[in-house]
Nucleic acid binder design. Structure first.
Length: 294
DNA sequence: CTGCAGGCCGGCG
DNA sequence: CGCCGGCCTGCA
């Protein structure tokens, strides 16, 4: 069956998709946007999206997704992997911007910005503050196991990410079992703010980027950087440039040739990359980590 | 034993 | 406003 330029074949336990370009699972899942996809021995990845456990493989230009049918492709995966966006065109434009981009992009040529659940992103990136990636993954997993819904699948038992209601009804000392330390009170406070509707996530898409960011920053434990990650990795806004320590370092080394403030970097990205800032950030982040630039 | 990791918060000048 | 110290936890 065809859908918007892709050909989808259904088989016993999943789908096979042809026509997928600019796509590499390693690049996609290791550029810092997601914490819940686990790499398997055979190179495939298993993750939970919308209460569905799937195993994903990409071989010989074909994308294989288990536990899915054509309807799931249309309703979930097409959006999730941002398959409606022409990354070849984006890479072409960015490469023409400067030498740094044309050097960095080949390292992460298969990067895609996932359109992930914004609520899960909020909590995940609150946990990310001043933390290490393995520990972030562990905390997110522990929250899911304890307060999410159990999903039994042929891949084993997994757990959905807990709802705002589930987390807001937990006393703080229960949240603390996820070992997120001082961030646990942020998780608790933010869950309550969302449940009470103090910040309404469903209206963010109709706002300008600045308005949406200011809305998210109201949440406990959400500052400028975390807010921009949430906006970018949920597919809400792409003209943001989340500047963490890696991006700061690589911008100073490759662009400024000196130390620079977060404000300077943000202004530079706005002027230089404009609406493609978020994509540029991802290629730079992956490049920085691959090459260990310091 | 220190240092430090994908920042944020709160207090201060 | 901008700047700076402190921070849970766990691993090097």
């Amino acid at each position: 069956m065809d859908y918007k330029g892709y050909t989808v074949y259904e088989n016993n336990n999943g789908i096979e998709i042809e026509g997928v370009r600019d796509f590499d699972l390693g690049h996609i899942f290791d550029c810092g946007q997601s914490f819940r996809w686990l790499k398997q021995q055979d190179g495939s990845y298993i993750g939970v999206v919308k209460d569905k456990v799937s195993r994903i493989r990409f071989e010989n230009g074909k994308l294989y997704i288990s536990n899915s049918n054509f309807d799931d492709f249309v309703k979930i995966w097409y959006d999730y992997f941002d398959l409606g966006t022409d990354y070849g065109e984006i890479k072409k434009i960015l490469c023409q911007k400067d030498e740094v981009m044309s050097q960095a992009i080949p390292f992460g040529q298969g990067i895609r910005l996932l359109r992930q659940d914004i609520w899960e992103l909020i909590i995940s990136f609150i946990i990310s503050a001043n933390n290490r990636i393995p520990r972030i993954m562990k905390s997110v997993e522990t929250l899911s196991q304890n307060f999410g819904r159990k999903i039994s699948s042929e891949e084993g038992d997994f757990y959905s990410f807990p709802s705002p209601e589930a987390l807001s009804s937990c006393p703080l000392d229960q949240i603390e079992i996820c070992k997120a330390g001082f961030r646990c009170k942020y998780i608790s406070n933010t869950s309550n703010m969302i449940r009470k509707g103090i910040v309404n996530l469903s209206t963010l898409k109709e706002m300008t980027t600045d308005e949406a960011r200011n809305e998210l920053i109201k949440l406990s434990g959400v500052g400028r950087k975390v807010a921009d990650c949430i906006l970018l990795f949920s597919g809400t806004n792409f003209d943001v440039f989340p500047t963490d320590v890696w991006i700061k370092r690589i911008m100073e080394v490759l662009y400024f040739k000196r130390e620079a403030t977060l404000k300077e970097i943000d202004q530079y990205a706005k002027d230089h990359f404009g609406s493609l800032s978020g994509y540029a950030q991802q290629y730079l982040f992956f490049f920085a980590r691959e090459t260990r630039i310091s």
